[in-house]
Design a protein around this nucleic acid. Sequence first.
DNA 1: CTGAAAGCGCTAACAA
DNA 2: TTGTTAGCGCTTTCAG
Lengths: 341, 341
Amino acid sequence: MKKVTILDIAKELNITFSTVARALNDHPAISKSTKEAVKKTAERLGYRKNKIASSLRSGKSNIVGVLVPSLDVSFFSSVVHGIESVMNQHGYSILLYQSQESNRKEDKGIETLLNSRVDGIIVSIAINRDDNTIFEEIISKNIPLTFFDRALHELNAPSVTIDDYRGGYMATEHLIQAGYRRIVHITETRKLSNFKERLRGYMDALKAHNIPFNEDLVLKGNLSLDFGKDCVKDLTSRGVLFDAIFALEDFTAMGVIQQLKAQQIKIPEEVGVIGFANEAFGSLVTPSLSTIDQQTHLMGQETAKLFLAMLQEGSFYKTAPKKITLDPLLIIRASSKGPKL
Amino acid sequence: MKKVTILDIAKELNITFSTVARALNDHPAISKSTKEAVKKTAERLGYRKNKIASSLRSGKSNIVGVLVPSLDVSFFSSVVHGIESVMNQHGYSILLYQSQESNRKEDKGIETLLNSRVDGIIVSIAINRDDNTIFEEIISKNIPLTFFDRALHELNAPSVTIDDYRGGYMATEHLIQAGYRRIVHITETRKLSNFKERLRGYMDALKAHNIPFNEDLVLKGNLSLDFGKDCVKDLTSRGVLFDAIFALEDFTAMGVIQQLKAQQIKIPEEVGVIGFANEAFGSLVTPSLSTIDQQTHLMGQETAKLFLAMLQEGSFYKTAPKKITLDPLLIIRASSKGPKL
DNA sequence: CTGAAAGCGCTAACAA
DNA sequence: TTGTTAGCGCTTTCAG
């Protein structure tokens, strides 16, 4: 089975291959009859347009690169799901990369994407990103770049994020309004600004409600279920008084819940708990976990739309970049129903 | 900023572009000094190899297509995670498609992949797949094709699956050994063979333990949390006697658990429950959900390895295809600890 | 060890 | 409405 090209179709019909090309691309200046004939023989011969050749010639690949930390984190796979769906409807394919939270792999990923001559790049950066040069290269080459969730805001590129500050504020305020007063916040040691924003929201919410900020109530580490457990152990063993915990993320919050249960501490009567991210398990566990929803599907769609708009504009970095901030959604479940009075 | 090609590097160094090309590809017949000079100026000029051009010329894209139903299902995103990681280590990129369980989109996806001249295709088919022609085209074109989890076994292509029959058998036998006797099985109406296999395992396990098969205890529908709830409602309202439920999949099992709890039916004392898939929430819910683990990470890695082996062979469909079957893992948790005696 | 030259399959400007 | 022609940027064979 040898390869069928437009030349084969042309020979078959005694016309030139450029007519064939035009017919296949529905060029307006081609008669209906030739178009039909061409399409029929194309089908008969099992012709498949070689996208590589057309990309090389036209300078457009109809492929966009998507680089995320890991598809094993449901937040990212969910957003990528949304991005792929929308981009696909608009005729684009997704070239996928995972940085695995490694800066080196992230750089390598971008390089491959650049070498592959993708039409644009969508990224959510690694947790420890500290060097922007590769991203500056994308921009200086005038290739469309859009960030989602984890953005480099100092760069002149559009982004779709949720308002982490507000999320942190909402979570904390909700706990306060539910009647909790000594509220612990578990945050991250690593660089990513999203976590710093949630912390800032936490602090401001306390201030707004005249609750003094207490440094002992802020714990830092690397997010994970086990870290959540450790935090509770640490707090109780040190005899710190607290009546609620706002964890930066749901798995950590789940660790908190499990450890509190293990130590027979009642949720929400003795300690209220709220997480962040609205993972699938939150509504299924007992007590169900209050959390902040990040609107993953909407984020995927908005990212794709913003990116498509950028593709159509042409001059990508002339004007101030559009930064879309989605509202976090407070999901109140059983774990923060308020303390026993 | 204009594009830099090997020609620019050549001019800069007063050598021909073919020498530059060889130097960049570490061709053995190029002197160390030229290689170094070339690489240095390449870097200085900001050269990036145009993969599209090399793909067109060499006939190799170093891209593999991956087509899955949906990344929003953690099973698939987890396997894709594994596939991407391994393939990436071997210099391949992933072109990603989602069929959204639609045959039409699946066909379109394969076509785009074919047009994109990927070096091979990895697929997990849509739930209602009924026509194999597009897959036959892949094989007839001698393009490497590998299935995972959901395979078309009648085709002469390799696959990595788990033994669904054994999974169904194990789940059922576990319930029997835990002391349950009137075991309900919830299965799917749709075509996919995996579910039929689980059902077969269920039936054979009953037979092996001399428990008569009772058609009233097999419920059919479309998997979902709500369907799980409906099943319990249906069984109790019809007054069917049962003391355990084996659901084809974890979300359905979760619906079962929620509805049993809502009706004050004790788990596992009055009714034991087991699911299938080992979703993240299973260990976090109360009672924790027994299930069958499908070894998603291993499946991703094995799929990638099998695929890579295929790529190296060259003659892809001469010999009988290698079909790897992974062992399902029984995960016993609280939901099936045995009935109250 | 390096150069010359052909061509992968298509797009698109220019001609007719 | 169709044909002619010139590449896109690289790989690769054949010469030297």
